[in-house]
Amino acid sequence: MKLSRLFTRVLQRELQLAYRRRADLANPPLFFLIVVALFPLGVTPDLERLATMAAGVLWVAALLANLLSLDLLFRSDHEDGSLEQLLLASSPPTLIVLGKALAHWLVTGLPLTLMSPLLAMMLALSPAAMPLLMLSLALGTVTLSLVGGIGAALTVGLRQGGLLLTLLIMPLFVPVLIFGTAVVQAAGAGLPWSGQLALLAAMAVLALVSAPLATVAALRIAVEE
């Protein structure tokens, strides 16, 4: 069987599982919505002032929503022993992990991206920045899913894994947050944004190449613990 075939199988399985756990699927978008809705209540309803913060608020909320869902990435696989089977596959486990990360992006990063224009309007983000908001979220959440996978793998067997995951992964999310927000701000202000977007893409590529390796190494420890 070709590797691409296995990759599709993994993706198919993950999406099927996500669909069968669809109650969990709603959590990140819901969290995204709630955090964004709380901001005007806590800060100001003044649209002009909200507009200046919109890029940052949207990105922080999307990042937290993503983080919330990472804890479950490997948990059930670890509990039922599928993780051991994954590591003993005849194909490189990195490929399977990559499939899982892509599935995670499809069910969290992508929905967050698709709903972001709606929330951006609530925060009066300038319409010119809208496409860039979506583009930066789409690219940035790829990195979040991949890098977050490392943290999820490191904490999968642990009690209180969720809290620890946040501590481990937050510092690594800083560059994505900075450049993601910067793209949207630059676009809103009519400034050039392609450099920032390119950096965001570069980070996604770096994560694509290296994160699965670290994730598999971490999973090997998790099945031993």
Binding site: R13, L17, R20, R21, S76, D80, G81, L88
Partner: peptide, 17 residues
């Protein structure tokens, strides 16, 4: 790996499938 079936204590059966 491709020549071995390993069935462990946790059998790797996904309950949602």
């Amino acid at each position: 790996n491709e020549k071995i079936w390993y069935i462990g204590h946790r059998p790797g059966v996904t309950l949602l499938q």
